[in-house]
Amino acid sequence: MLFMKGTPQEPRCGFSKKIVEILNEHNIHFCSFDILSDEDVRQGLKVYSNWPTYPQLYVNGELVGGLDIVKELAETGELEKTCHKEMRLEERLKALINKSKVVLFMKGNKALAKCGFSRTIVGILNETGVEYETFDILEDEEVRQGLKKFSNWPTYPQLYVNGELIGGLDIVKELEKSGELLSTLKGENAS
């Protein structure tokens, strides 16, 4: 986790920009938090970490350090050992698609869908009683954009069963209307 000024896409200081560049150059997968968005976190983390400046990089809940330490780790080859290398996007997508028998990529989650299409498909899936996992595409822009290309399906939500794309809300509605939704979700071949 990188606590920084701004976001990886739009850093708001040179130190944050440089640490993002280093992490990206070394294919380190990381999440970030914009400390400019929450003054309590900004001040509290300085006390918690006993580190007065930003950015701050954490691995497994432990402070690694700021830009100077990350630079040094990169120069000595220790950065990859300290941080987790990012799986190639295609590998990540395949792993996410197959994390459960039925996986729904949506805006939000089962408890709090963040768009009407996602809300509708969750309602339909809940009525079937079939267990399914969700992935909030609003939390990971790389997955959000990458899955569109990977699946050749330009919109969300996207429903996968046994690692195969079933489709979006319109397809799920058609399957429901034709009585084939439950067998599709169970991975049974409809005749």
Score class of each variant (00 low, 15 high):
34 D>A: 03
18 K>Y: 15
133 E>Y: 04
155 T>K: 00
48 Y>H: 14
76 T>I: 01
111 A>W: 14
94 K>M: 03
111 A>L: 13
138 L>F: 00
110 K>E: 06
64 V>T: 04
183 S>A: 09
93 L>T: 07
131 E>S: 14
77 G>P: 06
161 V>W: 02
13 C>N: 08
40 D>G: 11
66 G>E: 07
3 F>K: 02
135 F>A: 00
100 S>W: 09
62 E>M: 01
85 K>W: 01
168 G>W: 06
113 A>C: 09
117 F>Q: 02
153 W>C: 00
93 L>E: 09
10 E>D: 09
155 T>Q: 00
156 Y>F: 15
139 E>G: 04
106 M>G: 00
48 Y>Q: 15
185 L>F: 06
123 G>V: 08
21 E>N: 15
130 V>L: 11
151 S>F: 10
75 E>L: 11
94 K>W: 01
69 I>L: 13
162 N>D: 12
140 D>K: 04
15 F>S: 06
130 V>S: 07
16 S>K: 06
8 P>K: 06
119 R>Y: 06
144 R>I: 11
175 L>I: 01
168 G>E: 08
29 H>A: 15
128 T>M: 01
50 N>T: 06
88 R>D: 15
150 F>I: 09
170 D>S: 10
171 I>Y: 03
103 V>T: 05
155 T>I: 00
52 P>M: 09
97 I>V: 15
136 D>T: 11
99 K>F: 11
184 T>E: 02
179 G>V: 05
116 G>E: 04
2 L>K: 03
178 S>G: 05
80 E>H: 08
176 E>G: 11
70 V>L: 00
73 L>K: 07
128 T>Y: 02
21 E>R: 15
144 R>T: 09
92 R>S: 05
153 W>K: 03
164 E>N: 13
37 S>K: 15
109 N>Q: 10
96 L>W: 03
183 S>Y: 04
92 R>I: 02
11 P>H: 04
80 E>G: 13
175 L>A: 01
145 Q>R: 12
165 L>M: 13
119 R>V: 00
10 E>K: 08
24 N>Y: 12
74 A>V: 09
44 G>V: 03
18 K>N: 14
120 T>C: 11
10 E>A: 11
40 D>A: 15
110 K>C: 07
131 E>D: 15
147 L>G: 06
